[in-house]
Amino acid sequence: MKIRRRTFLGIAGLSALAVAEQKILGRVAGQGRNEASPRATGSQTARWAMVIDLRACLEKEGCTDCIAACHKVHNVPDFRNAAHEVKWTWKEPFERAFPGQKSRYAGQALQGGPVLVLCNHCDKPPCVRVCPTKATWKRADGIVMMDWHRCIGCRYCIAACPYGSRSFNWLDPRPQIRDLKADFPTRSKGVVEKCNFCEERLAAGKPPACVEACPERALVFGDLEDPASRVRELLRSRYAIRRKPELGTEPEIYYLV
């Protein structure tokens, strides 16, 4: 919204001139001030990704700490109705998360077991390709972001996502949020939402809420561009799979098996 910004600064400049304050004049001259400041979100070259250790995740049976933490910090509503359900992260049986890996005998330890799923923050996200308003887009650091101010609720992105990672607000979500948190917005009815990789926490230098909440440390978050990062080390030393890699979406959530 370059024009809006310029209009605003224009008005700001004119009013300031009217006040005729020397100091203000100086500020008006320095219009590009925000562009000059260093980025809040780490380095520009980061490529965020997550590695999930499936066995470690299965350690504590029935654990949903990560899901609870995520849904709490992001004011995710609980509709108690599968049709209108909104979820950012949840567990799916292994063969549903990995339909290509369904087998009667192979990988028996994992078959049927729960797998944590969330937005894959794909490198080539089909949801971004189809969005008619750029309400969803891929950031330089790989996070597939959403602008809930801009979403028109056409749900094309939901049709395009091969992982079922996106939810639509069929009704006003606010009354269904049990413990409202003031420092993160809720959503309005009629927009799509999904996991944002905790970009608001990353900006404050904190890890994603699910990663922090996991008692088994089964979720590892990090920068793929940094060869020394934990995620890179794990991907080097262990065998990892991704969901539906054959579709070419390049998911950036890796599962250690």
Binding site: R4, F8, R27, S37, A40, D147, A203
Partner: peptide, 24 residues
Amino acid sequence: SHMDLLVDWRDQVVRRSEREFTAF
């Protein structure tokens, strides 16, 4: 023009990951 400022802030934070504003 507080509304324009707020819209500008909104776009800065959500779309450009800029979170800091230097006042006049």
